[in-house]
Amino acid sequence: MEDNRNILLEVKHLKTSFFTQAGEVKAVDDVSYYIKKGEIIAVVGESGCGKSVTQMSVMQLVQSPPGKIVGGEVIFEGQNLLEYDRNSPEMRAVRGAGIAMIFQEPMTSLNPVFKIGTQLSEVIMIHKKVDKKTAWEEGIKALEAVGIPDAKSRMENYPFQMSGGMRQRVLIAIAVACGSKLIIADEPTTALDVTTQAQVMELLQSLVKTYGTSILMVTHNLGLVTRYAERVYVMYAGKVIESGTTEDILMHPVHPYTKGLLNSVPKLDASDEERLVAIKGQPPRLSELPSYCAFYPRCPYACEECKQGYPILEEVGPNEHFCACWMKNKEVAHAE
């Protein structure tokens, strides 16, 4: 990593497992990534690939038992967060003030029986140690900052009186109000309509410009990645299988799964007769992973060599383009 001072969060070899009756489920297996100040990065993958659990582990919010962070480091502003106990005051200070999280379903992440204002000023009171009145005033400012019209009266509203897009803005306001340095947005726009989706993403992007916030998006929508992210990590079955700049991942993907994922997205400019190229089969169950490449059963390029073990991430191009595939150097095998 070239400039360490610029790195806000670095996750090194993170491992999180769930210990169930069926045995150990490795939801996050040796995941490493970093995010710089003022950067938007994306973690992409399908449901069950461990992308959300990774973020939950960073925040130490994985339910325990059955979940447990088995190994690795989470270095936020030079401090390894995993050294803190999950209930320690230090960890609590990080949550909300240092790293904020925005979830997919804005209805379930707000408490239905409290006013927006109460929920917003509560966070400000705790993190900024101010009295109720000041907190309320700051709450209004935060709502205005995320583009909610008529913020003063909106503070008196309950979550059900707001639309999905507005609720998502309130959650972003909570993040802004405490001056979080990193916002982890877990599928922030999946529950929203396409036109509202664009509004929320533009808002998040403007936060980066005005406050220098870093944003980590967790998404399955490759289109959002194209428009907003600078770098991308693609996850499959608990591991990062490819990472690089958005340009490299989208235009010059190396891993067969990344290629397959890109081919599965319906294109607007395709001719009508063109069929989608689907990835065959289904994502594997994390409890029944093979001892070799997890994509093997679905991979169009799979061969005997792939069974020699887990492929490790290796550099495949300039600009930190990494890929974990046994076949990555065999251009012939990948030629379509």
Binding site: V194, T195, Q197, A198, N221, L222, G223, L224, V225, T226, R227, T246, E247, L250, M251, L262, V265, K267, L268
Partner: peptide, 8 residues
């Protein structure tokens, strides 16, 4: 214009 596309 809101439809996500993957062509960078």
């Amino acid at each position: 214009s809101a439809v996500p596309i993957t062509d960078y």
